[in-house]
Structures are given as structure tokens and as C-alpha cells.
């Protein structure tokens, strides 16, 4: 469903995606729900999925709203962590890359905060995790560290979640030039990590994970990507009441 890339996808009928320009999201949803059982929405504006859910009487799945949330990715991320680490509880989890605009990071941080984690946010100041998230962690008494140095907490990590620094998130292309390629997970980095540390990435990657990492036992990102299909199928079955 994600590959379709439309603004709104009526899952039961692909023709629904022909959205007229200028039509409001509210109206689009109201119309779509007439001939769909579930709405999957990926939309560039933040909060669009919540508005869609308010408009619709059928289930709405947020497939990503701007740089806000990406909950279906989070479910497959949680599933991947559970499968590769055999637990979700009490893990030391590092996030590196664009933590400011990275919605997969935002959603996963909130989800993992239910499992007594320790977080390591690795990013330059300009791309660090927004304060609203650290405020929430503080309130939940969850331990977290912020650093710009990838190697600093390398030994502590059970999981390293790597994200791409996305060009399209920067209003100014010069800003992007400043940050692209600043972090690189390679064999040298892996010399300092726990043997069973797993590396995840929501893919596609640019150059933040070196190809030489792919064949190590640390690489979990291809498995993670493959988990997307069963997890999303199950999610659809769940919201449609086909499984309980």
C-alpha cells in the first residue's frame, strides 16, 4: 500500500486515489469512506491523519504525516526489536541522524517509552530530538543522553537506529550540505560495540551505513524491511476485525 504513494489511498478500491486538486482533506475522507472499509493516509501535512480519523467513521491508519508520526513503521520496528533481541524491555537504544524531522524516530521513542528503555540521541544540535519528546521522557522518568558523537556511547547500545538525513526536510539546501554524511556506521565503528548489538534503519539509506556492515550479524535492517509486509497485513486485519 505504501508503494502507491498517493495522498489518500482507498484500500478497497484504488480508483479512490484520484483526488481533485483543491478539495479539502475533510471532504476527501468523507467521500472515500463511502466506498472503503479502511483508509490508509500518508500526507505531507502534520496532523492530517488525526483530522482524517475525526472525519471518518471507518478505521484510519496513519502511514506518515509530514515529520510528525509514522506509527505503522513503529509497529514493524517494535516487532523487529522483539524478534532480534527477544525482548523489548530495558534495552539501551541509540538513535542517530535526523532526530528533529525523523518521524520514525519520534513514533518509536514514544512507543519504546513504555518498555523502560535508556535512550541515546546522537545528532548535531540542529537535528536533535525536539524538546517536546525529551519533556515527555523526563516526565516518565526515562533516562536519556544527548550527544553529537556517534562513538561516545557505542559500548552501551543494544540497538542502534540509524536514519537518513533527508534533503527534502531542509528549507535551505545549504543547511543540508552542512549535515549530509556526518555519521557513518562502518566496520571501524563496529569494533567498539556489543557483540549482539543490532543496527536498524527504516530504509532507503544514502551512505550512513556502509555496505560492509550488511554481511555482519549486526545488520537487522533488511529483516526489518521484510517485516513490514506481515506487520501491515496484520494491522489491516486487526482494524477490520478479521482477527482478534
Amino acid at each position: 500500500m505504501e508503494q502507491l504513494g498517493g495522498t489518500v489511498i482507498g484500500f478497497s478500491n484504488a480508483n479512490v486515489t484520484s483526488i481533485q486538486k483543491g478539495e479539502s482533506l475533510w471532504d476527501t475522507i468523507k467521500m472515500t469512506e463511502q466506498y472503503a472499509d479502511v483508509i490508509v493516509i500518508r500526507h505531507p501535512l502534520e496532523g492530517s491523519a488525526r483530522l482524517a480519523a475525526e472525519a471518518a467513521s471507518i478505521p484510519v491508519i496513519n502511514g506518515g504525516d509530514g515529520s510528525n508520526q509514522h506509527p505503522t513503521q513503529t509497529m514493524l520496528d517494535l516487532y523487529t526489536i522483539q524478534k532480534t533481541k527477544n525482548r523489548l524491555d530495558g534495552l539501551h537504544i541509540g538513535f542517530v541522524g535526523d532526530l528533529k524531522y525523523g518521524r520514525t524516530v519520534h513514533s518509536l521513542v514514544i512507543a519504546l517509552s513504555h518498555f523502560n528503555p535508556t535512550f541515546y540521541f546522537i545528532a548535531p544540535d540542529d537535528l536533535q530530538i525536539p524538546e517536546s519528546y525529551t519533556d515527555e521522557l523526563f516526565q516518565k522518568k526515562i533516562k536519556y543522553f544527548k550527544t553529537a558523537d556517534l562513538n561516545r556511547f557505542a559500548k552501551e547500545l543494544d540497538v542502534l537506529y540509524v536514519t537518513r538525513i533527508q534533503k527534502e526536510r531542509f528549507p535551505d539546501p545549504l543547511e543540508y550540505e552542512k549535515f549530509k554524511g556526518i555519521y557513518r556506521v562502518d566496520e571501524q565503528f563496529l569494533q567498539n560495540v556489543k557483540k549482539d548489538m543490532k543496527i536498524m534503519h527504516p530504509l532507503p539509506r544514502v551512505d550512513e551505513i556502509d555496505k560492509s556492515v550488511d554481511n555482519t550479524s549486526h545488520a537487522a535492517y533488511f529483516e526489518q524491511a521484510a517485516n513490514g509486509i506481515p506487520v501491515r497485513k496484520i494491522l489491516l486485519a486487526l482494524v477490520l476485525g478479521r482477527i482478534k
Binding site: H43, P44, L45, E46, G47, G66, S67
Partner: peptide, 12 residues
């Protein structure tokens, strides 16, 4: 204050 918030782009 978020320019890409749905509320700044749609009558909500």
C-alpha cells in the same frame, strides 16, 4: 506555529 500543521492549511 507550525506552518505545515494541517490547521494552517485546511479550515479546521
Amino acid at each position: 506555529s507550525n506552518p505545515v500543521c494541517i490547521t494552517n492549511n485546511e479550515q479546521v
